[in-house]
Amino acid sequence: MQEFAGWRTDSATIRRFMFTSVDNSAAVKFFDDPSAVGTMVVSIFPEVVREVYAQPRSAEPPTRGGPSPRSLGTGAGASERSEVQTVQFEPERNAARAFIFHYATAAVLEGMGVIPKVDSAFGRFGNKDCDKGSFTGIPNARPKC
């Protein structure tokens, strides 16, 4: 499992990924471009294998989602030491797979109909103490209270 914990700032340092308000996100503070806030893309490019011929491209048109509500962006948090290492690698020109995530608070996803609404008077966990403490509002998340 490979972990990606932050924005690379130089060859020895990253700044931690941090879900924060849209106004405090790196996209707004450093790039003045909130157009893609709330999205993550992970594209996977296989290594070139010379003995294998490239697969023909599909003629199928791309499918694209509409805009999703934004509640949080990703900021640049604390600096951490993270040395760059290099390897020899020749990637293929086209990704084998791309993962697109829309990230948002549970409340926003509820509003979108992604998460079913819960009518419990004591919140998702049936424990009124959770509503006062660090109740996360996220299904299946373990409350800290």
Binding site: R57, S58, G65, A98, F101, M112, I138
Partner: peptide, 27 residues
């Protein structure tokens, strides 16, 4: 709600993830 699709021959997976404020990593 958007179905998975393709872009230039690349399969695309669309999903939502519920988060809250705090530090995180992509695995």
């Amino acid at each position: 709600q958007v179905r998975d699709g393709r872009k230039g021959g690349t399969p695309i997976s669309f999903t939502h993830v519920a988060v809250e404020k705090g530090d995180y990593k992509v695995l």
